[in-house]
Simulated scan of single mutants.
Amino acid sequence: MQDLMKRVPELSLLIGLSIVGYFVMGAFNQVGEAGALTGGGAFLLVLASFVLSIMIAIVAVIAGVGGGVLFTPIMMAFTSIDTLIIRSTGLVVAMFSGLVSSGPFMRKGLADVKIVLYCAIPIIAGAMLGSYAAIALAEVMGAQGDAIVRLLLGLILVFIAILFIVGGSNTEYPEAGHVSRFSEWMGLKGSYYEESLGRPMHYQATRVGIGGILFLLVGFTGGFFGLGGGWAVVPVLNLVMTTPLKISAASSGVLLAMGNSAAIWPYIKVGALIAALAAPWMLGQVIGGILGAHILARVRANFIRYILIVLLFLTSLKLMSRGVETLLGIDIPVL
């Protein structure tokens, strides 16, 4: 009984988000069934986008992921909005999350400028390639291309959910181990003052060649699917390149802002970014991020991560079922 009482805040949050989410997705369905948008339909779409953005930002902050990881799959799975528009807006969501967090990180000296500049080259190149590949696939294959994107995105969500299940291996102060000549030549090392320990911490990035290749892949995945890359940037910096967790998290925000800012331009060129849809999502990310930071102090983050894992699995099922339905022309009764 006492354990149940301790979980009242978490359960209240879950129930509240579920109720609001039900009405928000109902609003999206009404807009989708209406065909051409009237004035009231457009207002309903903007309002629903704003509310859903706040909800996604709250869960993303508490769970420690980027908003794009939730936005793009949910919108692709449960709405009929064009996938290019969803992916471009998803990049805006991820980009704005990075922009909001990058300023404080830079002022505190936690974001390593040298590491950011090194990793920015492959992540920007990969993001641009991913965006152009997404547009080319949509032009060549049309609805079949959208089905392939939904199917692949569903598989990626399963992979991300598994990472969250087994992802307890992050080390706050990883050991550098053997430092290659290339790592030494790049000079990706530094120090910062660790307030919790009351002393400066020194670090040296390693395996920077492998890290560069992985950032190219992360950038491509983020640009192609409109996910951003918050789920992968921190693990690559922390586990592969052995940078401290705080440096990894701070540098991740700056890298996401830079990579997603570049990835969005190909979508803008083909008219896939609609300002009236993107604006409420940007504002909702700010408000939801602030609320999520306050809620984080009152609930258990692990509880929210369990909710996120379930949400990722359920969304992946819906995405894969919609992809298979379009490719094979059958109806799969999932969710």
Rank of each mutant, 00 (worst) to 15 (best):
Y267F: 15
A262W: 11
L312A: 08
L277Y: 07
L291K: 00
F313C: 08
G271M: 02
G284Y: 09
I287H: 03
I295S: 04
A279K: 07
N302V: 12
A301T: 14
A278M: 05
K269W: 08
P266V: 07
A301Y: 04
L314Y: 13
I287L: 15
G259F: 01
K318T: 12
L256E: 02
S321L: 04
A263T: 06
L314T: 14
T315K: 10
L291Q: 02
A272S: 14
V286A: 14
V286H: 00
A297D: 08
A297I: 02
S261E: 01
R322M: 04
L308N: 09
W281C: 06
I309T: 12
H294S: 05
A301H: 09
L277W: 02
G292N: 09
F303N: 05
I309Y: 11
H294K: 15
L314H: 09
R298T: 09
W265H: 04
R300C: 05
L308I: 10
T315R: 03
A301P: 01
I287M: 07
L319N: 11
I290V: 13
G284W: 07
L255R: 06
A257F: 15
A275R: 00
Y306V: 09
I287K: 11
A257P: 01
G259Q: 06
E325V: 01
L291C: 14
V270T: 11
I268D: 12
A257N: 02
F313W: 12
A272W: 09
L327T: 10
L311T: 10
S321E: 08
S321D: 07
G292V: 08
F303K: 04
F303M: 07
A297N: 07
S316H: 04
M282R: 02
R305T: 12
V299K: 13
L328E: 08
Q285W: 00
G288N: 12
G271T: 09
L256S: 08
V324K: 11
A276C: 00
P280M: 01
M320P: 03
L291V: 05
M258P: 03
M320W: 06
V299W: 08
A263K: 10
I274T: 00
A301W: 04
I287Q: 03
A301G: 13
L255H: 03
A301N: 04
R300W: 00
W281P: 00
R322E: 10
L277H: 00
I287V: 15
T326Q: 15
F313P: 05
W281I: 07
L296F: 08
T326D: 10
F303W: 14
W281M: 10
T315G: 11
M320R: 03
F313R: 01
I304F: 01
V324H: 13
L291M: 12
G289I: 10
A276K: 06
I295A: 06
E325R: 01
Q285G: 05
V286G: 03
I304K: 07
A297F: 04
G271R: 10
R300N: 15
M320E: 05
I295Q: 12
V324A: 14
M320I: 14
I304A: 02
G288W: 15
A262V: 15
A301S: 14
L273F: 11
L308K: 02
K269T: 12
T326A: 14
T326S: 11
A263R: 03
A297C: 02
A293Y: 08
I274A: 00
V324T: 15
L283R: 01
W265Y: 14
V270L: 06
M258E: 03
G289L: 07
G323E: 05
A297V: 11
